[in-house]
Write a protein that binds this DNA or RNA. Structure first.
Lengths: 128, 128
DNA sequence: ACGGTTATACGAAAAGTTTCGTACAAAGAG
DNA sequence: CTCTTTGTACGAAACTTTTCGTATAACCGT
C-alpha cells in the first residue's frame, strides 16, 4: 500500500468513471461522446473534469499519443463499497437490511436477480 | 397532490433530516446538539440550514413558541427510495442485485438481518 | 426597568463543483 | 510551407453548498 487515491468522486466525476469502467481506456473525445448520449456536455468541460480527476488521482492517463488516453485509477467495487457505506450511514442508520429492502422493494427487480441475491445470501450465511 | 416537496437534500440537509426523523419535532438547539455529537457545528450554521430547508420545504416549522419547532416535511422512506434509485443508476448500472451484494457483503451484517432479508425476499417472490 | 441570556434573521465569505472561453501546440491536407 | 483541424492547458465565471459574524428582538431574573 503506497498511494492513497481519493475515494470521493463528485457526481460528474462518477459519471465519467462509469464510462471508463464500461469502455476501458478512452480518449477525452470518446468519453465526451458517451457523456453526450445522456446529456449535452461541452468538450472542454469533459476535458477539464478529466484533468481535475487526474490531479485527484481518480484516473491515470497515457500521454504518449497526442490524444491522451485516460483510465480509471480505482476499482469500481471500491467506489461502490464506499458509496454504499456512505448511504448506509447517512440514510439508513447503518441497517443493511433496510437498504436492501428498499432496493429490491421499489425497483422492479427481476426474478433472476432475486434468485441471485438469495444464492448470495445462502453463501454468506454459510460462512457465519 | 398539491405541493411538491423538493426531494433532493444535500448531505448536510440529510444529516438534519435524519435527526428530525429520529427525534421528532425539535428546536434548533436540540438539532444542533445532536449534530454536535457527531461533528462540531456552530449554532447559527444549523439555524441557517434549517431556514434554507424550510424555504425548500424539506421541513415545516411551528412558530408559535419563540423557539421554533422544526419537523421533517417528507417521509424518510421517500428520501431513501430516491437515494437508492440514484445510487442504483449512478453506480450500479441499475442492477439491484449488485447493490444488494455490496451492501450485505461488505458491512458485517448480522445473522438476524440476513434472515430478515431472506424473509422479505420470499415475500417479494411470492408476488411475482 | 435594565442587563444578561437566548432566539431568529440575514448577508456574505469561504469552499466546492461545473461549465466554458481563449490561448496555444501538434498534426495533417493541399 | 501555410492553413485548417484537432488536441491540451488553464483561468475564470457561474453555481451550489457550508459556515459564520452581526444585528436585532424576546424573555428572564433581580
Amino acid at each position: 500500500m503506497s498511494k492513497k487515491p481519493l475515494l470521493k468522486p463528485t457526481d460528474s466525476e462518477l459519471e465519467i468513471l462509469q464510462i471508463l469502467w464500461q469502455s476501458g481506456p478512452s480518449t477525452v473525445k470518446a468519453v465526451n461522446e458517451k457523456l453526450n448520449e445522456k446529456k449535452e456536455t461541452g468538450y472542454t468541460t469533459t476535458l477539464k473534469l478529466l484533468q481535475i480527476m487526474f490531479e485527484k488521482e481518480l484516473v491515470i492517463r497515457n500521454e504518449e499519443e497526442r490524444s491522451h488516453v485516460y483510465s480509471a485509477a480505482i476499482e469500481e467495487g471500491d467506489i461502490q463499497k464506499a458509496l454504499v457505506d456512505k448511504l448506509l450511514e447517512s440514510a439508513f442508520s447503518g441497517s443493511a437490511a433496510k437498504l436492501v429492502m428498499q432496493a429490491i422493494g421499489n425497483s422492479q427487480t427481476s426474478k433472476e436477480e432475486l434468485e441471485q441475491i438469495r444464492a448470495y445470501l445462502t453463501e454468506i450465511e454459510k460462512g457465519k
